[in-house]
Each structure stands twice: as C-alpha cells, then as structure tokens.
C-alpha cells in the first residue's frame, strides 16, 4: 500500500463519528420518522375519540341511518382523516417492530414493502368508499 493510501485510511479512522451524524445523520432522513410518528399520534388522540363516539352513535342504526351519518360532510372528512392518519401511524410503528424483530434481510424488506402497499391500498379504498357514500352514486 502506498504512503498516500495509508494516510487516507488513518484519516478515515480518526474522523469523529459526529461528522457523519451531523445534520440529517447517516440515513439522511434525520428525525423525520420519529417526529411524524408523534404528530400522527397527537392527531389520533382526537380522531380516535371522535371515531369511538361516532361508532357508538351508530350502534342500532339501520342501513339508511348509518349511510346518512357517514354521508354528513364533517363525518366523511373526519373518517377519511382518521383512516389516513391511522394507516400512516401504523406504517411507521410496524416499520420499527419489523426492523427490531425480523433479522433476515430479504424477509425484513419484503414485509416493510408489503405493509406499505396494504396501507396505501387501504387508505385509497376507504377514501373511495367514503366518497361513494358521501357524494352518492
């Protein structure tokens, strides 16, 4: 190995790890995951309580009543907001669980992608169904 190369290796070894961690860190996404999980959690405190109260109000509702409750503009908006936020929060949470416990790389990646696919499809499907109910067709 040349003198130059050795010098380069030594410099890499002595580089403070903080240099790579500064700013957005080595993963280049910073605290985005952590912060988004907290923001969706805070939103869900309110949305989940609204959801429970709304479901309880539909306990003995026949089809027409239930349909008209979901069709109310605010209920339709909050229902979409609830499912969107739940799916977002679930993707972030399940990602941590999968990364912690699934140690075979290909299974880990496959599960992470599968969870995202299901969440996106579920959100879009709910959006379509709520629009169908709210706008009538």
């Amino acid at each position: 190995m040349s003198a130059n190369g050795q010098q380069h290796d030594v410099r890499t070894q002595l580089r403070n790890p903080l240099k790579r961690a500064r700013g957005l860190g080595s993963a280049q996404s910073g605290v985005g995951h952590w912060w988004t999980q907290r923001v969706t959690a805070a939103a869900l405190v309110f949305l989940a309580l609204w959801f429970v109260v709304t479901v309880l109000s539909m306990l003995h509702a026949d089809y027409a009543t239930a349909h008209s409750i979901v069709a109310k503009p605010w209920n339709a908006v909050l229902l979409v907001a609830f499912v969107l936020t739940v799916c977002w929060h679930a993707v972030l949470g399940l990602q941590i669980v999968i990364e912690d416990y699934v140690h075979t790389r290909w299974k880990e990646v496959a599960l992470l992608v599968l969870v995202k696919f299901i969440a996106v499809l579920g959100t879009l499907a709910t959006l379509m169904a709520v629009l169908h109910v709210a706008l009538g067709a």
């Binding site: 739940v86 799916c87 679930a90 169904a129």
Partner: peptide, 18 residues
C-alpha cells in the same frame, strides 16, 4: 399490531356501507 389489523375492519365497514 392488533390495531393495525383491526383497521381492516373499519375498511370493511365503510365498504359494506358503500
């Protein structure tokens, strides 16, 4: 994890309504 699965039930409910 349980609630993530349970969300599919919400989807089913809204779907049945539509």
């Amino acid at each position: 994890i349980a609630l993530s699965v349970g969300t599919l039930l919400v989807l089913w409910g809204v779907f049945s309504l539509a």
